[in-house]
């Protein structure tokens, strides 16, 4: 009995060490991964399969190198998160009042995370889950300029609806990157905008008229639900991208081509967001 209560040096040392080290170890175990990533803004890349999301993500990572060759890509199954830098030649909006000749500006490279999401219809829930995460500064919705817009519009509608539902939180910018505009059948960005708006108008109408889904429980929930599911301003009429500004989403359409390395517009947009 005595031996239990009498202090002995080795046991004391071990006990002290344990008390000191266990919290520290736990801290490292839990916060190690999240600490570094916390302070850097994040951009999400969404869009249908085959529109060039992964290539775009890789292109941004290559960043300043001109004529850099982007690796070939295949259909993605998981997200790809890359740390990218904006070259000094692009002026980020946060440093717009600084002198161009400021030597510190030349050296400084704006860092941000680019998160690529899979575009396959079965895996879109991954992208939607990423949307809800904090620290998302902007979205890039990549569209194949030569693609059928009726299919694209559906995904875009869901994304916009998700953004509308999170309204009231911080402002978010959305770039519709009309990729592959070097193709012969490619449409100009303005035309794509018009087509998408028209298509979304039809989608939201047919959604409103459509059947209730099996998740809705009672009759009471239905009315409240209907209002939430209506994209843009209430009432009939055309859907316009400008309506999204009311809920803090700023939509920009810009054309370009990853394959040809023509991404200047998109990079400038990034600069404005940072």
């Amino acid at each position: 009995m005595d031996s239990i209560f009498s202090p002995s040096t080795p046991i004391l040392i071990v006990a002290t060490l344990l008390i000191a080290l266990v919290p520290i170890l736990l801290h490292f175990l839990i916060f190690k991964s999240s600490a570094a990533a916390a302070s850097i803004p994040k951009f999400l890349i969404l869009g249908p399969s085959g529109s060039g999301k992964t290539s775009l993500c890789l292109w941004f990572e290559k960043g300043p190198e001109e004529g850099a060759v982007v690796a070939a890509t295949q259909t993605s199954q998981t997200t790809l998160s890359l740390e990218c830098g904006l070259p000094a030649s692009i002026c980020a909006s946060c440093s717009q009042y600084r002198s161009e000749n400021d030597p510190s500006l030349q050296k400084e490279v704006k860092r941000f995370f680019m998160v690529d999401t899979p575009g396959h219809a079965k895996l879109r829930h991954i992208a939607m889950a990423e949307l809800d995460k904090p620290k998302v500064r902007g979205l890039i919705f990549v569209v194949d300029s030569a693609d059928d817009m009726t299919k694209v519009a559906e995904y875009l509608h869901d994304v916009l609806l998700a953004l509308q539902k999170r309204a009231g939180k911080e402002k978010i910018s959305l770039l519709i990157a009309c990729n592959k505009n070097d193709l012969f059948t490619a449409l100009p960005a303005t035309r794509i905008k018009a087509m998408l708006e028209k298509e979304i108008t039809r989608i939201r109408e047919s959604r409103a008229k459509g059947l209730r889904d099996s998740g809705v429980a009672g009759v009471d929930a239905v009315d409240a639900d209907d209002e939430n599911e209506w994209l843009g301003e209430g009432g009939k009429g055309e859907f316009k991208m400008e309506m999204m500004e009311e809920v803090g989403v700023d939509v920009t359409f810009k054309g370009g081509s990853v394959g040809k390395g023509d991404c200047a517009h998109w990079r400038q947009w990034l600069g404005r967001c940072l």
Binding site: T54, A71, A72, T73, Q74, L80, P118
Partner: peptide
């Protein structure tokens, strides 16, 4: 022959 990551990048081919 290709080595592809699940995130869609061709690492080696």
């Amino acid at each position: 022959f290709e080595v592809v990551s699940t995130s869609g990048v061709v690492l080696w081919s």
